[in-house]
């Protein structure tokens, strides 16, 4: 494939602007390839983030022609319109510089939602046997493959409008742990996600699910949390 792409990349911090570059087209070129080409050939000061280049690590997400995407697995041929590509940092997060968004608020909310495993046993206890087709394990499995890319968080209007909202990824992780019978912190977790700006702030409009690059469905996980927290509250197990 020959020809040139008209690429504009966000440069600078919050007060930056889009800057144009001409990048040669290649076969099977990804958006990450384009960004890397600019850094190697046009401006070495361009800042962006990536690691695995194969859709595993979740560090390369950016806004591509208006939509949040994982850039290492996004082919230019699928997303360029008329040979034009506009790439910016992820939305709903502060910009550090150029294409690198500050992920701290995103990960802080994972902690706030108690999105970490709390062991109920020690290494001397026997290993817990979990049937792979128990309903709880099936629910956890359906949500477990999150790569922490932040695409859903950037796609969620409720995050945009209510900066305190925990967001789809943190709640999706909380849901996997609620369904982990080995976890010991579910009262704390359900209390955390049932608070103001927790799971009940979600409007179920499924933007997160639409954009998730690994085809998870955070909307369904959040709906599960809404049910679980409502039951726990009505039984007096948690207080808002």
């Amino acid at each position: 494939m020959a020809g040139t792409l008209e690429v504009s990349l966000w440069r600078g911090g919050a007060d930056g602007r889009y800057v144009g570059y001409e990048v040669p087209m290649r076969d099977s070129q990804t958006v990450l390839d384009v960004v890397t080409w600019v850094q190697r050939n046009a401006d070495a000061t361009l800042s962006y983030r990536f690691a695995c280049r194969v859709g595993m690590c979740g560090s390369c997400a950016m806004t591509v022609n208006g939509r949040p995407r994982w850039t290492c697995r996004t082919h230019v041929s699928k997303v360029a319109s008329d040979g034009k590509l506009k790439v910016g940092p992820l939305e709903n997060l502060p910009v550090i510089k150029d294409l690198a968004a500050d992920m701290r608020p995103f990960f802080e909310k994972w902690q706030q939602a108690q999105g970490r495993f709390a062991p109920s046993k020690t290494r001397t206890d026997p290993i817990e046997r979990i049937s792979p087709d128990s309903p709880a394990r099936l629910a956890a499995n359906a949500a477990i493959e999150c790569i922490n890319c932040g695409v859903c968080y950037a796609a969620c209007d409720t995050v945009r409008w209510n900066p305190d909202y925990l967001g789809p990824a943190a709640l999706n992780r909380a849901w996997t742990l609620v369904n982990d019978v080995r976890d010991a912190a579910n009262v704390e977790r359900l209390t955390a996600v049932a608070a103001d700006s927790g799971c009940h702030a979600c409007h179920s409009h499924q933007s997160c699910q639409e954009h998730c690059p690994v085809a998870l469905n955070p909307t369904a996980s959040i709906a599960g949390l809404k049910r679980k927290t409502a039951q726990a509250y009505l039984r007096g197990e948690i207080k808002p």
Binding site: D196, H200, A201, Y233, L234, I238, P240
Partner: peptide
């Protein structure tokens, strides 16, 4: 919205 307001 918290769980109590949600239920109401």
């Amino acid at each position: 919205m918290n769980v109590r307001l949600y239920i109401w």
